[in-house]
Computed example of a mutant assay.
Amino acid sequence: MASLENHMQYMIRKQFNGRTRSQNKHHGAKKADYMHVYSNNSLKTHERAIHKFCSWAKENRIKRIRQINYDVIGNYCLYLQSKGYSAWTIKAGITAINHVMVGTGNWSKNDVFTASKWNKGHDAKFQTLIKRKNRGEIWNNRRQSAEQWRKENETLYENNRSLIDTARAFGLRRSELCHTSKDKPSVISNSFFENKGKLYCFVPYGKGGRPRFATCRNDMENEMRQLYQFQKAKYLPQTQNDIKKFQQVFLKKNEKTYRDNNYIYDGHVSGRLRFHIQRQEYARTRLDEEFKTKGRRNNTQRTINGIKGNETAFRAVAKDLGHGRIDVLGNYI
């Protein structure tokens, strides 16, 4: 009989079939998919989460998947909370367990574990599982704009201005700018291109390992020209397959740069730096640019988080952010 960890890891790997989200038309941001794993990064994250859970389960004499229920996972969440993990990190950790429980048929997609469901039956432990203060701090941080953050952290911003402004200009994630892993190289001096008067940053490894060209905001082009040398490009690949081909050529061409670790920014930056709200600012600014360029009523209309506009504009910004799915823009605008 296979061990609990072997069984759970097998189920997770079975769900990884190499298909992308776009190839699974049923997938949508509003309906979590617990039957498929879509990227190598997600697979590795789930595998680590399962290993951590199974180590705890072994100490608590849980040996079979059928022994896993709401109380078991709830107590596991309490254990993680006692170790200092945030509510959001805990939520990410139990996603893998939900995948296994749904994938094995023990639960339906409506039965998946959520902290809110468990809390309803354990009111006395509510504050221990998800502290209201932590949740409030998260929402307050989300409501803070990038401009407000820069004003409140003026010295921190000035000391890291080129880094933060590059994130603002191209909508880049921390991991795409700051080199931390040899398996996921960040941007380098040769990552910047100019095509037909527009500036772009080539990101070799975005979320899920997907490469992309991120468009520079119009209002920050002059500053970016002062920071970086932009290579003239007569043509930029448009389809994901062509961008992946470009990625392979780019990595080979700059192999020595990667080998010598000649990155613009390393991973030793302050944890107080905020990147996601810079991406939010980028998304809103770029969307306004796209609306002005393409017009608001020249094709199919969509409404995302209360903002109505043409679908072409939404898709352009979603592509710049590295998602490619316009429903995800609701998290940014």
Rank of each mutant, 00 (worst) to 15 (best):
N75C: 09
N75T: 09
L78W: 13
L78Y: 13
L78A: 11
L78M: 15
Q81M: 03
K83H: 10
G84E: 06
S86W: 02
A87E: 08
W88F: 10
T89A: 11
I94F: 14
T95W: 04
T95A: 11
H99C: 06
G103Q: 06
G105P: 01
G105N: 03
S108A: 12
N110T: 13
D111G: 08
D111L: 07
D111S: 13
D111Y: 09
V112S: 04
F113Q: 07
T114L: 13
N119F: 05
G121A: 07
G121E: 10
G121V: 02
H122E: 10
H122R: 14
D123M: 13
D123G: 13
K125W: 10
Q127H: 07
L129S: 08
L129N: 06
I130C: 12
I130Q: 13
K131P: 02
R132M: 09
R132E: 14
K133L: 00
N134G: 11
G136R: 06
E137G: 02
W139M: 01
N140F: 01
N141R: 09
S145V: 00
E147W: 00
Q148Y: 02
Q148M: 08
K151I: 08
K151E: 07
K151C: 00
E152P: 00
N153V: 01
E154P: 01
T155G: 00
L156N: 00
N159T: 11
R161D: 06
L163M: 07
I164L: 15
D165T: 10
R168N: 12
R168A: 12
L172V: 01
H179E: 11
S181T: 13
S181A: 13
D183P: 01
P185R: 15
P185Q: 14
S186Y: 08
V187H: 10
F193I: 05
E194G: 14
E194S: 15
N195K: 09
G197N: 08
L199W: 07
C201N: 12
F202A: 03
G208W: 06
G209F: 11
G209K: 08
P211H: 04
R212T: 12
R212P: 05
F213V: 09
C216T: 07
M220W: 02
M220H: 05
N222H: 02
